[in-house]
Nucleic acid binder design. Sequence first.
DNA 1: AACTCGACCAACCGCGATAAT
DNA 2: GATTATCGCGGTTGGTCGAGT
Length: 231
Amino acid sequence: MRKPCCDKQDTNKGAWSKQEDQKLIDYIRKHGEGCWRTLPQAAGLLRCGKSCRLRWINYLRPDLKRGNFAEDEEDLIIKLHALLGNRWSLIAGRLPGRTDNEVKNYWNSHLRRKLMNMGIDPNNHRLNQNLPRLQNPQDSSSATSSGMKSDTTKPHNDNNNNNSNEQASDAASCLEDGPSALPDLNLDLTMSIPSSTSAKISPEEKQKITESNLSKEPEVAAASPTLLLFQ
DNA sequence: AACTCGACCAACCGCGATAAT
DNA sequence: GATTATCGCGGTTGGTCGAGT
């Protein structure tokens, strides 16, 4: 077992104070990002590097958008999730000003429920006959069945296969469900490296996504209800 | 007014990947 | 090639707030 990254007893935990934020901002403005291990000491912060990195990436970065997600952002998240599964950093990389944490939280608190209310399994983006389907999907925000709440607020590990690869392949597997219209999503998953905070993409990964983008994406759109519904 | 419950979100934790030695 | 250090990701937790009773 690996030791905890910050076992020092004199490191702060929990919510960040304004002073701490300011110290971190000032330091990064002067010296730039990177070397998170040594940053806290250099910046005069009683935090572990990991915590500093997270705070900067998720909250303090000047290019963060914050605020509500636009409808097109929602659509994009759903489409990308159908393609990539829980690869939040990859998904966030396609949404300027959004962080993986933000996208992940938004998915778990809003979009999962939205899809379920539309009768779509959020794990594999298939139509789910066991789930209730609203007659009017636009009404989904107001429809929070009490039975569903416990299911949707916290992701379960028991039977939903949260493994992102499995999810991605689930999404991919539903490609084979049948032909249909082939909308040109052109999500451009491979052309640009996501923003500075984005995920590492190995060459294999890139290749995989490229293949998915070039050959399967239209099929994904064709077979996945989410991709059809949100056009 | 007090309490309960659920939703939201910032932050933490554990682990895999990668770089450095 | 093995070991160690560091980074970054995804899953999860816990605090806060607002709505409902």
